[in-house]
Simulated assay, not measured.
Amino acid sequence: MLDESRYEALKFTRNGRVLTVSINLPDKANAVTHQLHVEMSRVFDDVADDAGSDIIVLTGEGKVFCAGGDMNWLAGELENGLAPFIVEGRVMKRIVSSLLDCPKPVIAKVNGDAMGFGATIALLCDVVFAAEGARFADPHVKVGLVAGDGGALIWPALIGYGKARHYLLSGDPIEATEAERLGLIAFAVPGDQLDEEVASYARRMARGAQSAIRYTKIAANIGLREKLTSVLEASIAFEGLSRHTDDYREGVMSFVEKRRPTFTGF
């Protein structure tokens, strides 16, 4: 069984063969801290080996699925000196690869906004349900960063390059109903129906032929997994480079100081 004591930023609940993994930092709007990053890099391997579950639901505690990067964490890194990005890059790659490799279906229950890393991790899930009004965005560029955590991999795969490049290059949000229309997510449902819709779908999946479902998931993800050594690795490398620009420092500090950034292109 899953050793839940290894986790602080994630919590787990069970309902039969359905295991729900919740980002459990509601006081931070489930923003991505260093602790959450590390835990996300191992949780999908752990749930894959969990003998007590067949279906995984990923959600966020509170009113937000995940607000993206914790700007205070990023500002602290800038103040204390950036560590070599190779360690963080390996963590980012493990998160994406372990989610795609997890043989169990992973259902995203997006209960509120999914930003940056939050959008990427939700969209990499096998089936995405979102509450109407929830927004998805990859706003890395708005703080001077390259979208290196998988956004450049998954957005074009889901909605094509034309639309995906717009959302990645602008950082603009897309509301759940429009996201469903474009094919970015599977289902947008009224917020008060989200829990039951996901629970019903998960129960249906749990009654299915698990070997057939798992092998089908693995087959469907082959194309994405092949891009890990090209698109994802390049994206991670470019993000590492962008962390050393003046624009990145300006993007982070302007956010922390609650002012409009002034980018110079350097």
Rank of each mutant, 00 (worst) to 15 (best):
L145Y: 08
A114W: 01
T59L: 13
G81I: 14
L158V: 04
A67P: 10
I159T: 00
W73C: 12
D113L: 06
V128N: 00
D113M: 02
K142Q: 08
M92A: 15
G116V: 10
P156H: 06
I121K: 10
N72Y: 11
N72E: 10
D113I: 00
L82P: 04
G69S: 15
L100W: 11
V91W: 01
G151W: 07
V110C: 07
K104I: 02
G68R: 02
P139I: 02
G76F: 04
L74M: 15
A147S: 10
A134T: 04
R94G: 05
G116K: 02
G133E: 03
G76Q: 04
I107Q: 03
A130N: 01
F65G: 03
L100A: 10
L82N: 12
S98L: 09
C125Q: 06
A75N: 09
V146E: 08
V143W: 03
L78C: 04
G148P: 02
S97C: 13
K142L: 00
G118V: 04
R94S: 15
D149F: 03
A83R: 15
A152Y: 08
K109Y: 12
K63Q: 15
G68L: 05
F85V: 10
L74V: 13
M115N: 01
C125T: 07
V106H: 00
E79F: 10
V64H: 06
P139G: 03
F85G: 10
I95T: 12
G112I: 07
G112A: 13
L145T: 07
K93L: 12
W155K: 05
G160R: 06
A130T: 09
I95H: 10
D70F: 04
N111I: 01
V87P: 02
F136L: 00
D126R: 05
L124D: 02
L145H: 05
G160W: 03
A134L: 06
M92P: 01
T120P: 00
V127K: 08
G112M: 12
T59N: 13
G89D: 01
E61S: 15
I121A: 01
P156Y: 03
V106N: 03
F117Y: 15
V146M: 09
D149A: 09
A130Q: 06
F136Q: 01
N111C: 08
D126G: 11
S98G: 09
L124M: 15
P84M: 07
M71T: 06
G160P: 00
A147Y: 05
N72P: 00
G116P: 04
K109F: 00
D70W: 07
F117I: 07
G76R: 11
D149L: 08
L100M: 13
E61R: 14
V96R: 06
M92T: 12
E77K: 14
V91T: 13
F117L: 14
V110Y: 09
A108M: 01
V64G: 05
G81P: 11
V96C: 09
E88V: 13
L99F: 02
P84K: 12
R135K: 14
V141H: 05
W155R: 02
R94L: 12
G133S: 03
A157H: 03
F129K: 04
L82K: 14
N111K: 06
A83K: 15
C102N: 15
G62P: 13
G150Q: 09
T59I: 12
V110I: 14
D101C: 14
N72H: 15
A75K: 11
G60C: 13
L153N: 03
G151Y: 07
A122H: 07
K93R: 15
A131M: 11
